[in-house]
Nucleic acid binder design. Structure first.
Lengths: 337, 337
DNA sequence: CTTGGCACTCAGAGGAGAAGAGTGCCAGAT
DNA sequence: ATCTGGCACTCTTCTCCTCTGAGTGCCAAG
């Protein structure tokens, strides 16, 4: 259906369009790539490619521009992920290695990705649901107020204030703290409800109200309300890549957690990289943008996702390389810390 | 120098320009505001105002536009802060009242401000330097790793991992924790170095290395590196208020913590509201924007600042009203929690 | 000090024309 | 069967021009 040369032509069109940002014509194509045939031949190929929906012309007397379908084919079959240069890799390594806590890792990662790809970076905090408990702390901070702090194996710290509505002895708190830690250490957050189901039975009667209160807060805040925090960076790069009218829409979309969430999406592809092109995106305002995302995490298991958002006319091989490399390094950092 | 009518003319120019976004001419002015004189008279006044630098014309045959100096005069002498409507106040109250922890308060505040003013909101986390210690926690999380958690009276929780480089007994940790809490409870963060200066002397010799390590991390992370966290919201509003060329510059400026920091600035004005107009701003890229900021905090003492950034042609009375009202409510929330 | 009148300036809208890039198609060459 | 050169055609885009109208500054009279 599409012979090798037509594919080569499509590849050339994508590459040229990405670098020049202008519709590419048959003449320019043979000049820049030595395809060994004449412009007229290319024109015939282009006609076929257009008929099949891989490219389109903005108006009659203009060159061709790849469609979403064209980019899709390019990404799937015509491009190879571009590995980073040694210098870039060293930069990533040193930049991330200096991070001193989880917040810092995430914020450095987002800046790094944005700089590397010159686009908008999106990084999700290591998800609570896929983490396990490393430590639970219960701290009295006022007469009838406790602070519950949970530390996960991904280094995340969640805290929540608890109103006890009655005075509580330090012993009761210490007791409950010990019990919680004994039960929950190493426990997956998703398993917490099961593990804790019969907790109150193992507590002296006098301490049961406290235990029940703490427990409900613990469950509510960590399991049910597992808000997935996402941060973005490099928004200024949007202004450079003038997305026609839609800049406003894109900025709005980026402010909604829910949209970002769905943007990073699920890992359909076990190998890692997910690419969503233009209208494949689950949001109206992002019709002219593409997303390159992947999972990352300590060791093999992905605990969260990160990615990059840019105009559909982005440099896919380069972006994919950068996203993959950053995800790997972040994984290493998380595993090591 | 400027009689009452000239001031009235300036006020009218600012108001009209803010609402129409177009240079305002003498005729339009007498039509919209009943000034009781003819356009020709207004023209004379305008000539004076222009000579003094309060207004300017984009080109010879256009109406007048306020200069930064003109806005300054308007803000200082010609406008009164506009109180919010009852509905708006109720909205603020209910929206903020539902916040369940400090992070949530801050993120709700930033969204609220952005919506209310339809501009970019900037909120600084309650500053550590102006907070006091409520509790210190020391948690073993692995063989040679501790987690130091500090809770402040503003509800902020800071954590930092510590490498001990040798095994540490639980007793030593408990001992140190007790000592730290006894010493630091209620202590201003800025006083921490003084209070802790002789700490190691009060520790058994065997625990001194641990104490020294913990102490250095504590001092470094909480006092020296008191990174002031700032979050922004409503960036999409920038796209609406098309700032000529500089959108890119503004977005870039907003990504730099340092710039944001200086943007909110210090409270020169004890009464509260600080307004920085156009070139009064400390940053190149923000020449065409103004900032309305104020301090906020639990009770009387301001512990951090918040504000709004928008084009110089913003609705100052309305924006100032919104900023002031939000700051007050946030203060109440913080005091109450 | 204010006002009406008047000449002047200049940005912006609208239109005509020329230039140029790119296409589609066809007949001939390989 | 495929490629190629040529050619007519189609549009966008750029430039140049004119025209319009808003708004001004100035002046002389009230």
């Amino acid at each position: 259906m599409l012979d090798d040369r037509k594919l080569a032509v499509l590849r050339a069109i994508v590459e040229d369009y990405v670098s020049t940002h202008e519709p590419v014509g048959s003449k320019a194509l043979v000049d820049r790539h030595n395809l060994g045939v004449s412009p007229a031949t290319i024109r015939n190929d282009m006609a076929v490619l257009e008929e099949q929906g891989y490219i389109a012309q903005p108006h009659t007397s203009a060159g061709r521009v790849p469609t979403d379908k064209g980019y899709r084919l390019f990404v799937d079959r015509l491009s190879t992920i571009k590995p980073l240069s040694a210098a870039e890799r060293r930069a990533i390594e040193t930049f991330l290695a200096n991070a001193y806590d989880l917040d810092d890792v995430v914020s450095r990662t987002v800046r790094l990705l944005a700089q590397l790809t010159r686009q908008v970076a999106v990084v999700q905090y290591p998800s609570l649901t896929r983490s396990s408990v490393r430590h639970v702390e219960l701290v009295p901070i006022a007469a009838q107020r406790l602070l519950l702090v949970v530390i996960t194996n991904t280094g995340r710290v969640e805290q929540r204030a608890i109103e006890t509505h009655e005075d509580v002895s330090d012993e009761a708190i210490a007791h409950l703290r010990a019990l919680l830690n004994a039960r929950l250490d190493g426990c997956w957050l998703t398993d917490v409800p099961d593990v804790m189901a019969d907790l109150t039975e193992h507590v002296p009667v006098g301490e049961r109200p406290l235990a029940a209160t703490v427990l409900s807060v613990l469950l509510e805040s960590l399991v049910e309300k597992h808000e997935e925090k996402i941060i973005i960076g490099g928004a200024a790069n949007l202004a450079r890549a003038d997305l026609s009218q839609s800049l406003r829409d894109v900025l709005e979309a980026l402010e909604e957690q829910v949209v970002l969430m769905r943007l990073l999406g699920e890992a359909e592809n076990p190998s890692g990289l997910t690419v969503r092109i233009g209208t494949e995106n689950p949001h109206e305002g992002l019709r002219t943008t593409s997303v390159v995302a992947t999972g990352y995490g300590a060791g093999d298991q992905a605990v969260a996702r990160l990615g990059v958002l840019g105009p559909t006319r982005m440099d896919y091989p380069g972006t994919m390389g950068a996203v993959r490399a950053v995800a790997r390094y972040v994984g290493q950092i998380l595993a090591g810390s």
